[in-house]
Design a protein around this nucleic acid. Sequence first.
DNA 1: ACTATATACTAACGCCGTTAGTTTGTCAAT
DNA 2: ATTGACAAACTAACGGCGTTAGTATATAGT
Lengths: 193, 193
Amino acid sequence: MSRRGLTRAEVVRAATELIEDEGTGGFSLRGLARKLHVKASSLYNHISGMDELFTEVGYYAIGELKRTQLAAIEGKRRDDAVLALAEAYYRFGKERPELYKVILSLPMVKNDALLSAAGDIVEPIMAAMDGYSLSGADKMHLQRVLRSIMHGFISQEEAGCFRHFPVEISESYRMAVRGFILLLDDLENEASE
Amino acid sequence: MSRRGLTRAEVVRAATELIEDEGTGGFSLRGLARKLHVKASSLYNHISGMDELFTEVGYYAIGELKRTQLAAIEGKRRDDAVLALAEAYYRFGKERPELYKVILSLPMVKNDALLSAAGDIVEPIMAAMDGYSLSGADKMHLQRVLRSIMHGFISQEEAGCFRHFPVEISESYRMAVRGFILLLDDLENEASE
DNA sequence: ACTATATACTAACGCCGTTAGTTTGTCAAT
DNA sequence: ATTGACAAACTAACGGCGTTAGTATATAGT
């Protein structure tokens, strides 16, 4: 090491903090450098640029999401697991909205690392559906469906799209998840005939 | 008028074109000015800034979305209407992704005009559910649920999150909508008991 | 023809990400 | 202990951005 340490890990951590505290919108390398008492160009000794930094923060965010999801469904099966997963996903999006946005902004196609990160998002959802007797293909479809419901709900609420009507937002979410469970049951029955 | 016309409407139209052609990401006032053979600062004679311009493009986008949705459900009832609406929504998001993104970026809470624009998004969905005998509150919830499903699906597909599994994306979407219809039926039966 | 005004212009400010080239502190080998 | 290599910080600059202030000018209404 030389001339006052500053690690890649520290940079990423500081960036994550800054994003969580002040939002993705106003985030800048210069702002981050200021927080680290360093000039912006110095950051390039540790990261290749903004894109890589965001990607790195995104990995952390995905890890957090995965962790909370797995913790939520631990020891649960079937409907209990799905409900717990949906609840945990919602809470994550609500409590750490900026981190959640970073996940969404990742271009999940760009390279192998990102592709495997996409796998980390899928994993807990597949695990929650483990107890249902469904074909593999159905599970893949249903994973997409559940993610659409959860993500769609959170992002519309976050955007302020749900304030138009005077009915409880949490009740709407419960209804959405109930719809998914109805679909699960339906497909399971269909398969067993 | 004076010194070579250039209307607010023209500016908005050109901005819309530029966004649809080259994406929200790279859009800039200077780029727009270039397209209009004008300096960037001249645009301020017609719009108050970037925010207002985006809002204006957003209004247009919402109008387009509403138009296609209403056209899709015209003459249809119940499940037919819901399926047609979902199909039309999906096509809009897929065929005009950049315009769709502009809608999402609108801060739907900021002022009355934006609030009424939010109403334009809701209207066709409520219309599609007209044929079901549901309470008003249920319809409000279900409107949120359907929008979550549709938006969640489109935005995840657009982000590349759905390429991880080798099953048909359109089939997943059909399944998602089927789940919504199951929910509709369920709530209708429940209400009639 | 004259004046007022709307519209476009130039110039600049303060941000941004990024790059090139330079200095300087530290660690390892002599 | 001296030296040499290197990593990490620096300064300076480029071209981009949105936005503002102040200036010139062509047209519309008198």
